[in-house]
Design a protein around this nucleic acid. Structure first.
Lengths: 226, 226
DNA sequence: TGACATTCGTGAGTGCACTCATATATTTTT
DNA sequence: AAAAATATATGAGTGCACTCACGAATGTCA
């Protein structure tokens, strides 16, 4: 097997700028570049869709070299995952900090959670379908981005568990309660699919189905009530 | 944009065999090649996993040119989808033709259905995770294989609906019944994930969870019973 | 049986995500 | 302030899934 040949990149300019000292420039530039990538990617994903957007195009739009993208995100999927992290964080915060929900019943909290998620994703609907399930799918232990995805999922499950424990006294839990967050994760993915395909005005159908199914689901967690 | 250049493939041999007449050879060869591809792919998927298997390797193992693979399957995913078609058909047939299930309650039929599916997939566990959710995901309207995937899903949903109608009298159905097959599809995907991660002896945990959750699910479809 | 039509198998070509050796910019040390 | 150490931007290179112009093998019709 022949040794790998790799041409040396040609020097930038004959006279590079005389040494410039800009203290703290590193951290600043890093942040700025990351933002440029995210912004460029988002805009392209929205206008062309996820698949049709090339990493080269993202780099061009962000005015950096193609390879630089991969210094900030391990894979193209990883860029998409970034939005879902924001999405989950946003929704968790929205539910936590809404005083009206403080004493609301569980199903209402869960409804608000999913609602906040869908609301956040609405502007990106165009590319969600293609990217999301791929990125969040717990079965892809392949691919280097999975660690972040697992972590995100874990954060989400933790929050759901918290909500359940707040609302249902230990004694009154059904034997299925320990599974509930996992089930809710799958449920959320299902809801997302439903939402993506929902062509009703303002996605009313999705909201209606969520409302009803959550009521039923929650009643399962409290065998006595009903 | 410059015109595309494409070298002409070199002639096979100077003297090709004098015209050979083998009637029906076409259809025969076609079938044989398809089988060779499927067999080669399956074997490689099992030993190396889905992602790590290249289409070139499949072609080599099947003793055909790389391009030929794509005369038979539109994409690499499409090859995987072939197994899931078999899987679904196998499971539906198994449930239909089992006389013991004829008069069994709905939850038992559904359990048998999922059980048959998981049993069929067991030998391929190694590569299921990577391929399945991608291939079956109803949101991938991208990609040319989606039509077949939709069809498969449709066949499956139709069968589930049939089972429900057999078991629950029209009058006694709950308002959720019409959604049940869709929900069951998502449920099945969830079960698959659970199964993939289930390290208990003989996947006992999965079977136990299936059993319990189906009982609960079915009771939801008949508001009176419980 | 020979001429024409049709159906594929073929493999170089293409575009893409992603890698990596190198150059250059910043920080740390002296 | 120069030198050494470190971080990171760069873009040609790589391997991969997938395409397509071509021609050989088969089918059809006289």
């Amino acid at each position: 097997m022949p040794a790998r040949k790799r041409a040396k990149p040609k020097a930038k300019t004959a006279k590079s700028r005389a040494r410039v000292r800009r203290p703290g420039a590193r951290a600043q530039a890093k942040h700025a570049i990351r933002e440029r990538i995210v912004k460029a990617a988002l805009s392209l994903f929205q206008s062309r869709g996820f698949e049709a957007t090339t990493t080269k195009a993202i780099a061009q739009k962000a005015r950096i070299a193609e390879g630089t993208v991969f210094n900030y995100f391990k894979t193209k999927d990883d860029i998409a995952l970034h939005f879902f992290e924001q999405e989950v964080d946003h929704a968790i915060t929205a539910v936590r900090e809404n005083p009206r929900l403080r004493k609301a019943p569980l199903e209402e909290k869960l409804f608000a959670l999913v609602h906040a998620q869908l609301e956040f994703l609405a502007p990106y609907e165009r590319f969600i379908g293609a990217a999301l399930l791929q990125a969040l799918n717990p079965a892809s232990h392949l691919g280097p981005f999975s660690h972040r995805a697992q972590e995100l999922r874990h954060r989400y499950l933790g929050f759901v568990e918290e909500l359940i424990e707040d609302s249902i006294p230990k004694g009154k839990q059904s034997s299925l309660t320990f599974l509930a967050p996992e089930i809710f994760w799958v449920y959320y993915l299902g809801a997302l699919l439903y939402w993506l395909y929902d062509s009703s005005e303002g996605k009313q159908n999705t909201l209606a189905v969520l409302d009803r199914s959550l009521n039923i689901g929650v009643s399962l967690l409290q065998p006595g009530r009903r």
